[in-house]
Lab assay of single mutants.
Amino acid sequence: TLFEALYDYEARTEDDLSFHKGEKFQILNSSEGDWWEVRSLTTGETGYIPSPYLAPV
């Protein structure tokens, strides 16, 4: 399942991933609570992002 960003987000740590509203992601790991490890389909980068900022496509 692909997810889309509902809002912009600016990374706060080196493990976070900055992204823009509308960017699409592949979920790599969603078992860590509200922070999911994802791969951006736009940039190819991986990192953690807050799951409340995402919605299924």
Rank of each mutant, 00 (worst) to 15 (best):
L54C: 05
D16I: 12
L28E: 01
P56C: 08
D15G: 15
E4A: 07
Y53P: 04
N29M: 06
F3A: 06
Y48F: 13
E14W: 09
Q26P: 01
T13L: 10
L41A: 05
G44Y: 06
P52R: 15
S30V: 11
E45S: 09
D16P: 02
G33I: 10
S31D: 12
E4T: 08
R12L: 13
S31V: 10
L28M: 08
S31C: 12
D16S: 15
F3N: 00
A11N: 05
K24N: 05
R12E: 12
E14F: 10
S30E: 09
R12F: 09
F3I: 03
S40Q: 05
P50L: 12
E14G: 13
A5L: 09
I27L: 11
W35P: 11
E45P: 00
E32K: 13
V38F: 01
G33P: 14
T43I: 00
E10G: 05
Y7I: 11
Y53S: 11
F3C: 07
I49R: 00
P56Y: 05
F25C: 02
D34P: 09
P50F: 15
Y53V: 09
T1Q: 14
T13V: 08
V38I: 02
E10L: 10
E37P: 02
I49Q: 00
L28F: 03
R12Q: 14
L41F: 06
P56K: 07
L54W: 04
T13S: 12
R12C: 14
T1P: 13
D8T: 06
Y53W: 09
S51K: 11
T43Q: 02
G47T: 03
E10K: 11
E14K: 13
Q26K: 08
G47Q: 03
T13P: 05
T42P: 01
S30D: 13
K24H: 10
F25G: 00
F25K: 01
K24L: 15
T1K: 12
S51F: 11
G44D: 05
D16F: 14
E23L: 01
Y48R: 14
R12K: 13
V57K: 03
T43D: 02
P52A: 15
G33H: 11
E14D: 12
P50S: 09
G33D: 11
G33Q: 11
E32S: 13
L17E: 01
E14Q: 12
V38W: 00
L17W: 06
W35F: 10
S30N: 13
